[in-house]
Design a protein around this nucleic acid. Structure first.
Lengths: 156, 156
DNA sequence: AGAATAGGGTTGCATCTTAAAACCAGATTA
DNA sequence: TAATCTGGTTTTAAGATGCAACCCTATTCT
């Protein structure tokens, strides 16, 4: 049977995964953040089948993550660029990259060294912070109006 | 043909997606963060097929995101709990939730109000920060030793 | 004790999705 | 005009998914 869809789930994480939660979409967004814009470039960099790339690009455009821009001097040449919605996935991508670097480091090479242009310094680890800016974990959080996330049924 | 795997990709995002990048895995982790531990509870809350749930739980255990704990008073009763690696996905999940809340809000209901237990205040929006703690976007970042992410080929 | 039920799976089958490669048509380039 | 580049669509085979039906081991009910 078909994959289950979460378009109308009452969980925003499920709905988000519905848009960028498959194997390729987030990688496409990642490469778009690196500056890739052209169909052929995505295809080469990702090693993705053309039909799948077509489908994913179309879906990302449909969901407003990318926009398809006609840059044809005379006709049919396109670029896929991030929208603000797409650029807003930056924290998600970075958090995922840092998680991957921490828990599944490449055996040989050093992780990507991302730096802030203004300071030249490496960026910080993405964290969840409380109102005072202090980093917190899943155990420090509760859903307002509901029992604590980690109390009666303490995670992990 | 088979889905392409990224186990040995030189990109840590790809490797991360290989572990938690399918439709269900991150939702399972999310619910684990909410306190769900039992097979039947995951099944009911997620509405996932049992064979798929089996497969995903096994894969998450295999990847060290969950651990399977035998809580059988006399025998065969199990709990699936987050490991530290799994708990460390917290920023990813929260960033994704906030992105979903912002860009695909539920038509009717308010987004989940997550609060810090210590202060009682809502948690902050997850951001990428530079060394000074200032939020930065994808355009502010460059890869050390490579051309700026957003310069010659400015994203978006 | 014996029957019914819950927990945690496995198996089969029909349907979707994916990867890979072939094929296409409109611009460009040589 | 012939070869290429771009961005796709089509075809085919192998996987992945969803669903329902079974299974086996505890518990719980009668």
């Amino acid at each position: 049977m078909a994959r289950k869809r979460f378009d109308d789930s009452n969980c925003s994480v499920a709905r988000a995964l519905n848009q960028v939660g498959d194997w390729w979409s987030l990688l496409i967004v990642l490469h778009a953040m690196y500056g890739t814009r052209r169909f052929v470039d995505f295809q080469q960099e990702l090693g993705i089948a053309k039909n799948i790339l077509c489908d994913r690009l179309a879906r990302l455009v449909e969901n407003g993550v990318l926009k398809k821009v006609d840059v044809g001097e005379h006709g049919s040449r396109f670029e896929y660029r991030l929208t603000e919605k797409g650029r807003d996935l930056f924290p998600v991508v970075i958090a995922l990259r840092q998680w991957g670097d921490k828990w599944n480091p490449a055996p040989d090479e050093a992780p990507l060294d991302l730096r802030d242009r203004a300071t030249g310094q490496p960026i910080q680890t993405v964290q969840v912070q409380n109102a005072e800016g202090k980093p917190i974990t899943v155990r420090d959080v509760f859903v307002s109006g509901e029992p604590t996330l980690g109390s009666k049924k303490d995670p992990a």
